[in-house]
């Protein structure tokens, strides 16, 4: 890749890339800036930046008026719980599809993906009724199950494409070495596929954290995660930009920071077999 690039071209490319990246990022940045302004400053016209009144008041007020730690904890439990449960079911399934493929494997995968195409709104009422009936409504377990099932096809697909890169000979070697199926998966496949599993895990935590339909409709207070927290904030508060921004920032910052720190791992496996 050591190609001679004229410094001029390189400078233009760098400037253009940064311009585009900052534009894409700007809404998030603007929201965070707004969250530190006073309400008056937040809606001032023309928009204030250097002259703005900076304050931490919004965060203090949001923190005081709502039970942020509970919402936060629910989000953590639900996203991590659904991810771990999903992996436990998906790893064996992906093993089967990647290493013992049959004529129907591709169809099976496509069918799994198609279950995700059913619009959530379409099945809202039945699921609401079922969840009420079997006592899963407004429970963390209920949301863990729902989000796990919602994302299972994506998890299986990601793991499947990742497992396919692993040479089957290595698993055969393990079999020759006397490994049972369980040992083969635990001692050989899983450690070898760790980067892919990590990436799948991250993506799934992000998807589960940001899910805002089932988490809002299948909870009231007890199990409500941050998506419900933000929904409750935008509704009755009216247009208090600064406080809304502060609440928004509190809802997304944990996952944003996790994402930033782990983006290398995330991106590595985020190919769905698109890269050969």
């Amino acid at each position: 890749m050591a190609r001679a690039q004229s410094p001029r071209r390189r400078l233009i490319a760098t400037l253009a890339a940064w311009g585009v990246a900052l534009t894409i990022f700007f809404p998030v940045l603007w929201m965070v800036l707004t969250s530190f302004k006073t309400e008056a400053s937040a809606v001032a016209m023309p928009p204030e930046l250097l002259s703005a009144d900076w304050t931490l008041e919004n965060y203090a007020e949001v923190w005081q008026r709502s039970d942020y730690p509970r919402f936060f904890w629910n989000s953590v439990v639900i996203s991590i719980g659904s991810t771990l449960l999903g992996l436990a079911i998906a790893i064996p399934a992906a093993w089967s599809m990647a290493f013992v493929p049959g004529k129907r494997t591709k169809d099976l995968l496509m069918w799994m993906l198609s279950t995700k195409m059913m619009p959530a709104v379409a099945v809202l009422i039945p699921l609401y009724l079922v969840f009420q009936r079997i006592g899963l409504f407004d429970t963390k377990l209920g949301l863990i199950l729902a989000l796990m099932l919602m994302n299972l096809p994506i998890i299986i697909w990601m793991l499947y494409t990742y497992f396919k890169e692993i040479p089957a000979e290595i698993l055969e070697a393990a079999r020759m070495d006397g490994a049972s199926l369980w040992s083969e998966i635990v001692y050989v496949l899983t450690p070898m596929a760790l980067p892919g599993i990590a990436s799948t895990m991250l993506l799934n935590i992000i998807l589960a954290w940001n899910e805002a339909f089932w988490t809002i409709t299948l909870t009231t207070t007890k199990a409500a995660p941050l998506s419900a927290f933000i929904a409750s904030f935008s509704a009755p508060q009216g247009l208090f930009y600064a406080k809304l921004s502060a609440a928004s920032a509190m809802a997304i910052l944990p996952i944003l920071i996790l994402g930033w720190f782990s983006q290398k791992q995330l991106v590595r496996g985020l190919t769905f077999g698109a890269v050969k």
């Binding site: 894409i24 990022f25 809404p27 998030v28 929201m31 992000i206 954290w209 940001n210 899910e211 805002a212 941050l226 998506s227 933000i230 929904a231 935008s234 928004s248 809802a251 997304i252 996952i255 944003l256 996790l258 994402g259 930033w260 983006q263 995330l266 991106v267």
Partner: peptide
Amino acid sequence: ISPFFVMPPV
């Protein structure tokens, strides 16, 4: 990548 981490309602 940042917008990907922002939940839809936000």
